[in-house]
Simulated assay, not measured.
Amino acid sequence: IKERCFLVTGLGHIFSEAAGASLKARAIRYLCVRLYRSALRGARVVFVYNDADDDDLRRYRMLQGDLSPTMISGSGVDLDHFEFSKPPRSGPTFLMVARLLRDKGVFEYVEAARIVRRSFPHARFQLLGHFDSNPTAISREEIDGWVREGILDYLGTTVDVRPYLAACNVFVLPSYYREGIPRSILEALATGRPVITTDLPGCRDTVQPGTNGMIVKPRDVAALADAMAAFAQDPDLAEKLGKRSRELAEAKFDVHMINRMLFAGMHLAD
């Protein structure tokens, strides 16, 4: 196949700071770089979602010649399928949607929920996502323990996240995983929900702090609790910032706009 185009949705955990600098991590990263160089050889275009992946592709010289990565704003979101809705007046209800992995910030979410509930016992904290075979996976026993404690509502899994997004006030993803641009956040933006997420590649690209959400340091439980408490204290804040989320989705993450960028980059546009 002479004409090849590549979409790097995220280089993965091994290129993150969390992977560490151990001999094993360096060896795996070296092997991954060699494999990426081989896979991307002769590419017409290589699309990336965020600055960190762009930087790593350049730093490790994964592309040949003068080819540079082409930045796009994630996979995009269907703004017709994920319609805007006002958040419920009751609450607040916080929702996290993710694979049940430690690196996604599940423990930090639960610990922050404990703190917030001391001042706002009416606040609800929901978790939606499937169990995973990853070594950092959260166990069913851990989830059940949090549910029995009354800290968390575990919603199981679903093929349609829209009703859950419509029923929440604030979307939370305290990930310290090496993300591309999380699709779960894009769907929350389109629905008109403010987002609390971490200052990491991919996640921070979806939030303008104070405008459509809040950004906190990874693994900072106190900062995450403070951000959630701000919404619990001001019932109107979620609606105000949620409108800005929808505007950002329309301006930056519309799937039709993203598709046009992809076709243009592949020289397939009319």
Rank of each mutant, 00 (worst) to 15 (best):
S85K: 08
T197F: 03
S245M: 08
G12P: 02
L63S: 02
D132Q: 09
R118D: 13
D54K: 06
R118Q: 15
R4Q: 14
M257P: 01
K86I: 09
V216K: 02
E250R: 10
L7H: 03
P174N: 10
T206A: 05
H130R: 14
T191H: 04
K24L: 12
A225V: 10
R99H: 07
K252C: 12
R114Y: 01
D254F: 06
L237T: 08
A229D: 00
S119H: 06
I181W: 02
L95W: 03
N212L: 04
R178T: 05
K104L: 08
G192N: 10
D220L: 06
L152F: 09
L186I: 09
D132M: 10
T9W: 09
S184F: 00
E142K: 06
I138C: 07
Y154A: 10
V147D: 06
C203E: 04
T9A: 13
A167N: 11
G129T: 02
T211H: 12
P88K: 01
M62H: 00
R124G: 01
R178C: 03
E141Q: 13
D234N: 15
F47M: 10
G76M: 07
G213I: 07
E149A: 15
Y176P: 03
D234A: 15
N212D: 15
S16K: 01
G76V: 09
L100T: 01
V97N: 00
T136Y: 05
A230C: 13
A249R: 00
G20K: 06
M96C: 14
L268S: 09
S22W: 05
F125V: 05
D199H: 13
P209N: 11
P201R: 02
H13W: 08
L7A: 07
Y176S: 03
D236K: 14
T191E: 03
C168I: 09
S245K: 04
G91Y: 05
D270A: 15
V170T: 05
A43Q: 07
A229C: 04
F107R: 10
T70K: 14
Q208V: 14
L7S: 06
V161D: 03
R37E: 12
P121V: 11
F131A: 05
T197K: 04
R260A: 15
R26Y: 02
I1G: 13
G192L: 11
E83K: 12
G192R: 05
G12S: 08
P235E: 12
A251G: 08
Y60G: 05
E108Y: 01
F15I: 07
V170N: 02
S73Y: 05
S139F: 09
T70I: 06
Q126R: 15
P209I: 13
P194E: 10
R162F: 00
K2I: 08
M62W: 00
E141G: 07
Y164W: 14
L57P: 00
L224S: 04
V106D: 04
A188T: 07
A238R: 00
G12N: 05
M214D: 09
G65L: 08
I196M: 04
L241E: 00
A43F: 11
V195P: 00
E239F: 05
I151T: 15
G145N: 12
F6S: 02
R89G: 15
G180I: 09
Y177W: 06
R44F: 11
R124I: 02
S73Q: 10
A43D: 10
I14W: 02
H13L: 12
D103G: 08
